[in-house]
Amino acid sequence: MLRVLIVDESQERALDLCQGVAAAGHLVAAVLPDAAELAKRVQEIQPDAVLINTDSPSRDTLEHLATLDRDYPRPVIVFSGDDDESIIRRAMRAGVAAYVVDGLVPERVESLMKVAVARFEEFQSLRKERDDAERKLSDRIAVDRAKGILMKARGLTEDEAYHALRKLAMERGRRIGEVAQDVIESAKLLIG
């Protein structure tokens, strides 16, 4: 069972969406009339997913969705009557997992939520892989720079410099990239 936050400016449509969520076996955590302060509300309410029903997502709504995706990522489904390709693309870039055109059919909520959650989880996995790869590259660059500093300052070979960094990292219980960055920062202080 998922806790779902619903955003809809129309109370009547929100009620239909609430019924669709309940019929799918999920819990409606809250209903908001608009996406203003969406990230803040998600932080407070802690829903598992967000469903937005709108005639057309406004620029403000898309900005709120981008902030949500950056700060408190959640699966987001947008039901909209607007099939403008540029709006759909902006919504997807803002972190929307599913964009459904031509309104809401309450009977389809469950399958749409499954698709949105699966797509969200896959995207989060890809994002984590990208972040890990960027961190590893950054660490590798820092290690190479720190090795160069140690080789020059202490007259070490490349292997000796690497082993000195590795030993220091193990002694401090930190990643070698973090220790290398400390060496670089220390060298900046000493050299100027």
Rank of each mutant, 00 (worst) to 15 (best):
E121H: 11
P57G: 03
A30W: 04
G95P: 10
L150F: 05
G103E: 09
T54V: 14
L126H: 13
S10N: 12
G81H: 13
L156T: 01
F120C: 02
V105S: 05
V101C: 05
R90L: 11
L62P: 07
M113L: 15
E37M: 07
R90Q: 11
G155I: 06
V4Y: 00
D71I: 12
R135D: 07
M1D: 08
L51E: 03
A146R: 08
E171F: 10
E122H: 08
E63G: 04
E107P: 02
S125G: 06
E110D: 15
L165R: 00
I6Y: 05
E160K: 04
D159K: 10
I6P: 02
R3N: 12
V50N: 02
K128E: 10
E178Q: 15
A36E: 15
I52N: 04
T61N: 01
M1K: 03
L168D: 08
D34T: 13
E37P: 00
G173Y: 01
D71N: 10
H64V: 03
D83R: 04
K40A: 15
D69L: 00
L165Y: 03
L17P: 00
R59E: 14
A146C: 06
I6H: 01
E121W: 09
D159M: 08
E12S: 12
E160W: 01
S111A: 11
L112G: 04
V100F: 01
R175A: 13
H163F: 09
F120V: 05
G20N: 06
I176G: 09
R154L: 14
A164H: 07
G177D: 14
V31W: 14
V105Y: 04
T67N: 02
A35H: 05
V31N: 14
K136E: 14
A146L: 08
L165E: 06
L32Y: 03
L126Y: 09
M113Q: 06
E129W: 04
P47E: 11
V28N: 00
K114G: 01
A30P: 06
R3Y: 09
S56D: 13
V183P: 01
V100W: 03
D159S: 06
A118Y: 05
D131E: 15
R119I: 10
L137V: 11
E121C: 11
L189A: 14
C18P: 01
A133E: 13
M170V: 13
R3S: 09
G20W: 01
L17T: 12
P33K: 02
E63N: 12
I191W: 12
E178V: 14
G103P: 05
R135L: 13
A116L: 09
A14K: 10
S111T: 14
R175S: 15
P47K: 07
F120Y: 15
S58H: 03
M113F: 01
E178S: 12
E44N: 09
A91C: 03
G148D: 13
L32Q: 04
S138I: 03
A66M: 09
G103A: 05
L189C: 09
K167P: 00
R3Q: 13
